[in-house]
């Protein structure tokens, strides 16, 4: 484990917004609820994209891909905003934990694969759906591994932290 800028974390956790999240009755639980709703939407639609790309759900993939992007981006934005608020409340707790960076990398990979499937579908016609290209199936597997890995990493954050400078 390298050296972490603890002074920066200490400054972050004393910013007005961090204090607001920690000390307002509803800010923290509301953030965590929105984070869970956004996860349900984002992993939910990714699950559908993956099942479509794997050929498990015939006739789903092309019309789904057409309508996926606004859902993906809305859910991502919600999880980003709620996630940043949760992070600001206890910055040292997450930022000193390698698992947190693993979670971010997995989310990055998962989102990239989601968007790649959506974009590849633009070049597919309904006849292609009977035999989906291998690269699409591979991305389907990747989406499932990356998103469920991100969920696992996210849950483990509550058990693997070692630094807590505020309570």
């Amino acid at each position: 484990m390298g050296e972490f800028p603890i002074a920066l974390f200490a400054w972050l956790e004393n910013t007005p917004i961090a204090l607001w999240v920690r000390e307002t009755l509803w800010a923290f639980p509301l953030s965590i609820i929105v984070h869970a709703w956004a996860m349900a939407l984002l992993v939910g639609i990714s699950l559908l994209l993956a099942l479509g790309a794997l050929g498990v759900a015939p006739r789903l993939l092309l019309p789904l891909a057409e309508k996926s992007k606004p859902v993906i981006w809305t859910a991502f934005l919600l999880s980003l905003i709620s996630g940043v608020l949760l992070l600001l409340a206890y910055p040292a707790k997450a930022l000193t934990n390698e698992v947190f960076y693993l979670k971010l990398v997995l989310i990055g990979v998962a989102l990239t694969l989601d968007l790649s499937v959506v974009n590849q579908c633009k070049n597919l016609s309904p006849q292609h759906e009977a035999v989906l290209p291998a690269r699409l199936r591979l991305r389907g597997v990747g989406i499932l591994l990356a998103w469920f890995g991100a969920i696992a990493a996210g849950r483990l954050l509550a058990y693997t932290y070692s630094v807590l400078t505020v309570t």
């Binding site: 349900a40 939407l41 992993v43 939910g44 699950l47 469920f148 969920i151």
Partner: peptide
Amino acid sequence: FTGLCLLFG
């Protein structure tokens, strides 16, 4: 949490 996503998805 995995089950939650399977259900909601």
